[in-house]
Design a protein around this nucleic acid. Structure first.
Lengths: 225, 225
DNA sequence: GAATTAATTAATGAGTTTATTAATATTGAG
DNA sequence: CTCAATATTAATAAACTCATTAATTAATTC
């Protein structure tokens, strides 16, 4: 036992296979999502991600080369699937917008519970001007898709199924503003007794209450209460 | 004329007084607000602010020492005044919440036109977890103020002036979600013909339409249309 | 008009971040 | 069993950021 200076618990080299532990690449992605959502992309270094995952910075480089590429992978493997999953509701319920809106809100909220990083990243993407987001997202979400969504809203309005005063291009942003924004905001309020009772369910009920009585076609069409 | 290497157009020293140009400190604050709003605080260096203002990094240090202190100054001199101005509406119209809400929306939108940085910074503050925002804002906005706002909403609900299904703690966030978030988002969509028609007025009308028919006390109380 | 204060630039050191390389150890295929 | 592929660490160079200082020039005050 040549007692040299104990400088590190671990020396280079491939480790012995662990029993069913999640693979390192996935763990880096998990932690990257968490940190990007909490602090923003700009404020999160590759080293920080690796450190928090208990790895060396070189590991992050080994798997992703750069932060940009890591982010690209996140978009493809994590963000886009969650997003298309949520937006699918409008195709599934094309005939009944009010039901679609309610389900959309509930699925947004459920997604937030399942994937806590989801909301913050979406909001950040919406407000960031020159971030990596812009270029990377644009590639995947085309203008046609957006046009189709707006057209659907206009059609519902023509059919008398939706408040004609609603601006089609703003409906989806409004939905996010009523659900995702509160979800993200309340997390910051943890520990404040004034808002201790606000959870996903409360937010969903609040949003639906505001929407069903505001987005409905008729003025006296009292479905609620 | 000792022809040395021409290395800079300007040598050290206090400049001759300019004719009524805005003072440098204010220009740095202006540009800091713009960049903080567009890119976030973390992604904006003091040097970048100075460079964009056509000054050296040392100027930023001369006036503010650090980015944190610059941000402190911004909060006190720019952000807080705008914010208290907007929130004052609820004290001015304590007896008529529906009118207060409409005015609040309109003033939010007007503020955004006057101070384009306002919305993005507010949203960023709401979603940022550990940023400088948190500590600095908490000092100025106390818990009592927030409790008073929530109580006002509850009182309106008891008086039958507001939809009882609304969650008091979420009302203000919802208002921001319906106005400020869209305002910030549309700026990112510049150049997209699908949303070229969306301006401050359109957003305000959309938000008011959603709110008046959703937040009103009675179900058949058809004030709109 | 001399002394003090204000405003500015150039230069720089300390600290971080990014990206990379070389060395090392384990696995798995043939 | 050998060897190529895979996974990991240590170490490091280049670039950038932050904050700071010394020198320099103009304005103001007395």
């Amino acid at each position: 036992m040549p007692s040299e200076t104990i400088q590190s618990a671990r020396r280079p080299g491939r480790p012995a296979k662990q029993a069913a532990s999640k693979d390192q690449r996935e763990r880096l992605l998990d932690i990257a999502l968490e940190l990007f959502a909490r602090q923003g992309v700009a404020d999160t270094t590759l080293s920080a991600i690796a450190r928090k995952a208990g790895m060396t910075p070189a590991m992050a480089h080994y798997y992703f080369k750069t932060r940009e590429q890591l982010f690209d992978v996140l978009i493809d493997e994590r963000i886009m699937p969650a997003r298309t999953d949520i937006e699918a509701i409008f195709k599934e319920h094309a005939a009944d917008p009010m039901r679609a809106l309610t389900l959309f809100v509930e699925r947004l909220v459920a997604t937030h519970v399942r994937l806590p990083w989801f909301g913050a990243l979406w909001i950040r993407e919406m407000i960031s001007d020159n971030d990596i987001f812009k270029q990377h997202m644009r590639k995947r979400f085309g203008a046609e898709q957006q046009a189709a969504k707006f057209d659907a809203v206009r059609r519902w309005q023509r059919e008398g199924k939706l408040n004609p005063q609603i601006e089609p291009a703003l409906l989806f942003v409004s939905l996010l503003g009523l659900t995702t924004l509160p979800m993200v905001a309340v997390r910051r309020w943890q520990g404040d007794p004034l808002v201790a009772h606000i959870d996903a369910q409360v937010i969903a009920r609040h949003a639906v209450a505001l929407l069903t009585q505001g987005v409905g076609p008729g003025l006296a069409g009292a479905q609620g209460i």
